[in-house]
Amino acid sequence: MQKSLHIDPDKCTGCLQCELACSHVNEGVFNPAKSRIKVFNFHDQGRMVPYTCTQCDEAWCMQACPVDAITLDAETGAKVVSDALCVGCKVCTIACPFGTVNYNASTGKVIKCDLCGGDPECAKACPTAAITYVDANWTGLDRMRQWAAKTDAGAQAEA
């Protein structure tokens, strides 16, 4: 069963544990500047929103790459950058409509979320379950359940 990252911004406190976990597993240091997931703080609205690659099926980054350095991990559905092949041309960073592929000047390669091979550290590190790793076919399950709970079930509700 394929899974995907599911983000519920309502639950996010903006603590950046996801960025710390991401940079730790990918770079070996705690460095939010090198995180593949980013939390945005819309201060005046009091909203914190984590954002990262959605792993498009028809991945524009993958199609744009002139050296085929971005490939599909069939098991997880992740689009994965090969450091050995990436030439740092940054065409993928332009192609991605969501801005989730970015250049890393210290290595000369691009970086993006690869779902940690199917066990994403950001989801494990999130203290409020704002980031979860769930059945890719049922990312709407929680929201459906919430609405279902509000549905008047007539006799059941009165019982």
């Binding site: 406190t13 903006g14 603590c15 710390l20 609205q45």
Partner: peptide, 15 residues
């Protein structure tokens, strides 16, 4: 109150 908010790395989030 709009929300609670955390400082860097904080898993309490008392803000």
């Amino acid at each position: 109150l709009v929300t609670n908010a955390a400082c860097f790395g904080c898993t309490i989030a008392c803000g």
